[in-house]
Amino acid sequence: MSEIIVQNLLSPVVLFFVLGIVAALVKSDLKIPSALSEALSIYLLIAIGIKGGIELSHYSIESVIQPIMGALFLGIAIPFITIFITRLMKMDLQNSIGLAATYGSVSIVTYGAAISFIEKNGIAYEGFMNALVVIMESPAILVSLLLLKIIEKKKDESAYSMRNVGLVYRPAGLIDKEVLRDSLFGKSILLLLGSLFIGLVLGERAVPMVKPLFMDLYSSVLILFLLSMGITTGQRLPEVKKHGVKLLLFGLITPVLFGSLGVVTGHLAGLSLGGMTLMGVLAGSASYIAAPAALKASVPEANPSVYLGLALGVTFPFNLIVGIPVYYEMAQWIQ
């Protein structure tokens, strides 16, 4: 186990991420232009999506239905578990919902780093796993926002029954159109889903054109992006410290809890060792692209330094350095 963690720590992907953190902590003038960082994220989304679509074209619907159901289960169950834990921590409702959406959704970059890890170690995995990234992106956001609306509605009804006055009428439904649009057609989901569909339709015919850019250069581009993410993470670390030890422990313990649930779900869905590991990584990761974008528009009361600071400042580096090897070891033990 320790050997695998050390091996992962000494990979270029992790070392460049650490370099970015160090640069931020020592207040270096090293910066990645925002336009370049945006371009790198677009590249990664397309690369993961189109590779998943090409691989998915090799499978029948019968062979992927169980993993898809497993992915949907995780996307729905994790927000409920997160809200239960945060409410035990006496956290306010809005920030609980923020963490539920963030931790229920997935990190594309963590998944990309996990792909590099298992490929470097020669571990086989199902090609359709890239498709599960898309499937797991939206459900948690929708479920979290739905729970917020339901809880708020119950509170309003309770207050109204006690006072019978002062209730503000809200004609909107449980989830408005803007929330649905941001959750289903936000940049990350649109790019993933679109490139996945293109890869699925074209199949192997797409390989000669996409291989030089989106397959051969993938690991090198990931290094550049993780250097950028390291800088951002280092800048977010002070924000996490403001909120105390409880929140820090949440960011360290829940990835292992959810990752374990993901590995077990992958096992029950009939996935291979590599597939179980990736399912664990997806379940244990936290979104810092799609979920924060939806939360900013739909739950402005939630504090970004809590859900975004924790996802980027604690859970992301934990998964990158320790989590991925841990989920792999869990998958090995279960298998």
Rank of each mutant, 00 (worst) to 15 (best):
A24Q: 04
S260Q: 02
Q66F: 13
T102C: 06
L10H: 01
A23T: 08
V133R: 05
S37L: 08
V179M: 09
L190Q: 02
A297R: 13
V106N: 05
I115F: 14
I46C: 08
S195K: 06
E126L: 12
L147E: 08
F73V: 07
L271Y: 11
L252W: 09
F84N: 04
L184M: 14
Y43A: 00
A77Q: 06
A291M: 10
G122D: 12
Q7K: 08
L45R: 02
Y307T: 01
K153P: 00
F250Q: 03
I223N: 03
N303Y: 01
L224F: 13
I108H: 07
L252F: 14
L227F: 15
R181N: 13
A269W: 14
S60Q: 13
L74K: 10
G244I: 12
A206L: 12
A283L: 14
I54L: 12
L146W: 15
V133L: 15
A100V: 07
K242W: 08
T82E: 08
V26E: 02
D92S: 04
I97C: 04
V240S: 04
L252S: 05
V14F: 06
V306P: 01
M91T: 14
S63L: 07
G203V: 13
A302D: 09
M162H: 14
M276D: 05
M89L: 15
I32F: 12
A294L: 10
Y111P: 06
K242M: 11
L249G: 00
V64A: 02
F84V: 09
P171H: 07
D216L: 13
S220N: 10
P292E: 05
E126Y: 11
G284R: 09
V306C: 01
